[in-house]
Every structure is written in structure tokens, then in C-alpha cells.
Amino acid sequence: MKAAAFDYHRPATLAAALPLLAGGARPVSGAQSLGPMLNLRLARPAALVEVGRLPELRRVEERPEGVLYGAGITHAEFEDRAVPDPTGGILPAIAHGIAYRAVRNRGTLGGSLAHADPAADWPVTLTALGAIVHLTAPTRHREMPLRDFLRGAFDTALGEGEILAGVFVPRLSPQARWGYRKSCRKVGEFAEAMAAVLLDPPRGVARLVIGATEARHIVLEGLQTLDSVEAALAGAGLTEDPARARLFRTVVREALAAATGEGAHA
């Protein structure tokens, strides 16, 4: 349970970090997902480059239409409302449910999204919220919907030498409704099934995202019938095992009920 040898660089600026990343080093911020993989020797990077504390990745910019978060904002900063929140309390509530406080103190938003674990909270939540990721490479900057960025289990659209620098979360309307459920064996463990529902009629948004699929998230736009949800689950191979199918049906049903029920942000 000791990591294999690697080199470590801590550049002072993003401009200094990018050439190192282009040279094949892996970015690291809180190391709360990468650390276990290093210790288990499942990941053996030749070099790591610290990016989580770069000033460019620690910026937060509030705009009328939403908030642009630097990728280095920690889960605990969301949980404690130390950063502005355009979602009426959704982000702090989700952050509170991520792993444990000792992990939330160090783990970052950008690290979680770039790691792209299908059973993690931020990928499901922020896909449902319609977040946009900002990607930076030495010669270009591009933006894309998080939904397109996440391509599968641990697979993203990041190119060689490119890093996830920021995440834009759109501001919800006051009428927006939210439902979120995850099924975990134990508090703080990775979920076995999860679902997020966002209904925001003034902005024309009705979206259901199903996570912990061991593959790309299922994203259903528009209000759904139970049949269409069932077809999506079956299409993803999630109904073959009856126990597992039941978990997914339950989290979807409960998330939908929470979003369409009487409570504001359930």
C-alpha cells in the first residue's frame, strides 16, 4: 500500500503548469481519488503536477446568469457556503453528502469531474444542472457541456496536455425544483445507484440524470413516463440483475417525487 515512485512538480502559474502537462505528467489537486489508486499501485504516473492551488483555478466569478468556479474549489467550500451558490442550496447539500469531511477538506470540484467516476456526486449533479466545463491547453481554450465532457467510466473529452480549469453552473430560476437520491451501502461510500432531477420550467429545463451506471450517465431530457425511464435503464443493462434494477427504480422514483412534491428543494 505504498505508491510507486513518481516525480512531483508544483508550478506557480497555470502557464508554467501547461507545458509540464503536455509532457505527459498527470494533474493532481486534492488527491482524494488519485491517492488511493497511487497507494494500490493501480495508477503509476511518472510525474504529477499540482494544479489545485494555482491562482487561476482558485477563482470564483459570479455572473448574472450563473457562477464560474475555479476547478480547485474544495467540496468543503461548497458545503460551508464559502462560495456563491446560484442553485438555491443544491450545491451545499450535495457537497455535504460527498464522502467524509476529511475528504471534502481536500477534494476538489475539478478533480472529481476530471476523474469522471460514474458513481461520484458532482458528475451526476452538475450534468443535471447543465454545467459547462472550461478546458485549457497551451494553445487553446474551449468550453463544452459537462454532459459531453463525460464520455464513460473514468473517460473524459480532455485532450493531451489539457486541463479542466473551471466549471460554470447556470443560475436556476426561483421556480426550479430539484430531486436527488443515491443508494449507498454506508454513509460516504460510493453510490450503487443515483438519480438527479431538475425541473426549471421558466428556463425550459426538465432533466433526469441517472448515475452509478458503471458507464456513461443516462441523461433524459424532457419529462419522462415511467416506461421511458424503464427503457433507458434496460438499454443500459441495469435491469438484468433484479436487486440492482430495484435500486435504480427506487432512486429514480424518489428523486422524481422529491422534485415534483410540495417541498422547495428536497
Binding site: I218, G222, L223, Q224, G235
Partner: peptide, 16 residues
């Protein structure tokens, strides 16, 4: 990629 079905307008209207 597995993707969502279409917008079910009737349900949106009902919910609105």
C-alpha cells in the same frame, strides 16, 4: 450513446 427520449409535452403542461 444511450440518450434521452423526447420531450413529453403533455406531461410538462400538466406539471406546469
Amino acid at each position: 450513446p444511450l440518450d434521452g427520449g423526447g420531450l413529453l409535452l403533455a406531461m410538462v403542461k400538466d406539471w406546469l
